[in-house]
Amino acid sequence: MEQQYLELPSEEVSENGESLTVEEAIANLRHEELGKRYYAAWWLGRFRVNIPAAVEGLISALEDDSDRTEDGGYPLRRNAARSLGKLEDKKAVPALIKCLESSDYYVREAAAEALEMLGDPSCISALIKLLDGGVEVAVLVPGKPHLVQPYEDIIEALGKLQAQSAIPLIKPFIEHPVEKVQYAAARALYQLTGEAVYGEYLTQALDGDNLQLRRSALMDLGAIGYLPAAKAISETLAENSMKLIALKGLLEHHLTINSKVNTQKSKVESQLLLSDEAIEVMTLMDSLL
């Protein structure tokens, strides 16, 4: 997810590192050098090689036992999970659900994010299980830079997957001490309830004095397409590239809803109906180029 925020050209990524063919990358998932396996798993996601052999290879890599960090983490499993999220093949869902029980926090995080991207509701109960104990147990792991569970990703996934049953479990997280978890809760609750109060919560976060948090709120507003935030997005202190991504999210969300309303019309005809709000968003985007 981080990649898209950087002002790096997409061309450059392929020039760095090793260039591979699809066959080589799939074969390298079992290469004797662990570094090559790790790179191949990333590469298949980066170039969205969504062919069955790649998906199967990555699913097998979710059970890898050879690549371990000093404290017991599974680097290859993490990369494989991240890539499976990008390949849009729901065959990966059961294996990713299993990863939610991994002893490695970063495998659980990658799996929750991938499950959000795949959009298959069969993972909802497994995600909800990770919220067990509520805010009270959602504390930092001593000596680690993360909480006991990847709450941000879990909550965002539940919102995206329209997990209505999770609403009462997510609500308390809007008062979690970590701001990004609060934002994830607001984002999910907006998606689940459509109540403006949660959109406004994120809009106000654009006024905060921490750049990282403003960026985070920008991405959340873009993801939920909260139209009343358009002006605040254009004015917050952050990179224009990120504001443009957020405004694009608002615009496209709005256009998609509008064209659903006009299902009788053809694609071109429905786009002819640009609302005043859509034009306002585009005018703001023009000013940020």
């Binding site: 615009l251 071109v268 786009q271 002819l272 640009l274 859509a278 585009m282």
Partner: peptide, 19 residues
Amino acid sequence: IIDTDTTLAVSARAQMAIA
């Protein structure tokens, strides 16, 4: 662009220009 661009926001901007 309206017929072929894969990004909805780009098509919409072309639509706005035509209008």
